[in-house]
Design a protein around this nucleic acid. Structure first.
Lengths: 238, 238
DNA sequence: TATAATTTGTCCGTATGTATA
DNA sequence: TTATACATACGGACAAATTAT
């Protein structure tokens, strides 16, 4: 299940992060060198590189080489939208606390059923959590999980990473995440939870998560503390 | 300069938008069919498809087919972060007005020089615009352009699309855009311009644009009216 | 339930084009 | 001008997931 291009991509990414290429003019070895180093075809190297380009780590310039992109923005502790795999993965070097505010089974309303492409009345888990990172009240999350795909959840799983549970215990591959990002005024409840004032700005992300095979298993609304959360989008238009 | 995979990708994208595949179960033809239809190799078809997957238009499922993704979120008139090529391109079917508030040449300060990777004192254009879409005060833009790369700008260009000018008149290819997205309270000036109240939420995007060859030609801050602007991010984690 | 056919995914090799140094 | 290095495009073989039989 782990392919050549995946492990090569990961290894190069780690080398970039380690500063392994800092003394080579912030350039990666040429494709030919990588072909020899890893003993694979040029296509495979290019596929490995592709994912790093997508993530915004490198900038290939035809005729010149593959340059490691400036990490100043990456270091601004913004969440890279290309990398996003849940708070637990994104802030793996920080202390994450979770306050479980609500956890219950509910039936899909017409509106939710439409969004999650399930039937009205289907069983869902509803979860409301406050996430605290390094002592800072970071985000209030409202999530619905389709019980048809996530048949069991408990407080322990919820207090850790639901995404890890899905991937490791359920052995399901998360394929797609659709996310709408907007700003809006905080309501009383969220303001109180985040330690802010009513009407203060919030960075709101509304998300739909799908398995590789397309089924929507999660719909969630994340109300972020505007003082902490930033999203980073590294686009390449080529 | 236009490659096979590019024109094929564009054609398929237009067919998706036209609803051309609606009666085929929202599925694209198989790769083999596309190979025959366009008379190119399978690799070329896959490369064309790749860009559409990246843009979030289609969801390939191994063994099953390539499904056109639900456009409900796309139709929420949010700006697709994967597509972004400036307001003029994104809202090509809307009426865009531009109020030029400030346009002058300035010298790069230490802070700006660091961001734009140029020298302190380098010549820059500074532009402050209010953009009105379909009569709605949409966004206040503060932009710096490096004169070294964009040697000439005038009011006419500014009132239309600077990006179009760069690509068509200067024949430069835009390669990368780094963008940080956050929320924050409106200051007095921006609130007034957007017809909102001081302290109201704003969706703020801070951008760095680079040519294909890496030079930073633009640094800008966009203060969006939270009532109108939404960003859409369609991720595939595969 | 098991098998075969279909369809996308990975990987290889090669040749030629194009931008940069 | 020449060499370097990435980009495009072709072709083929086999693997893996899904669907149909």
């Amino acid at each position: 299940m782990t392919h050549k291009y995946q492990s090569i991509s990961l290894e190069i990414e780690q080398k970039i992060m380690n500063g392994h290429y800092n003394n080579t003019g912030n350039k990666l070895p040429t494709e030919e060198d990588l072909v020899n180093e890893y003993g694979v075809s040029r296509n495979t190297i290019r596929k490995a590189i592709d994912t790093l380009v997508k993530k915004g780590f490198i900038m290939p310039v035809q005729g010149s080489g593959m340059f490691i992109r400036d990490v100043s923005m990456k270091n601004s502790n913004a969440i890279n939208l290309e990398n996003f795999r849940g708070l637990t993965a994104d802030y793996q070097y920080s202390k994450i606390e979770t306050k479980l505010l609500e956890f219950q089974e509910v039936k899909a309303t017409k509106k939710i059923a439409e969004i999650m492409q399930c039937n009205v009345g289907d069983d869902l888990y509803f979860i409301n959590r406050l996430r605290i990172i390094d002592g800072k009240k970071w985000v209030v999350e409202y999530s619905y999980y389709n019980k048809q795909y996530i048949p069991f959840l408990n407080k322990e799983i919820i207090n850790n990473s639901i995404y890890n549970y899905i991937q490791q215990a359920l052995k399901k591959q998360i394929g797609y995440v659709d996310r709408i990002i907007e700003a809006g005024p905080l309501n009383e409840k969220d303001a109180k939870l985040l330690g802010l004032e009513v009407g203060d700005p919030a960075l709101i992300s509304t998300n739909k998560s799908m398995f590789k095979s397309g089924e929507i298993f999660d719909y969630s609304i994340d109300v972020h503390n505007y003082k902490y959360t930033k999203f980073l989008k590294l686009s390449n238009l080529l």
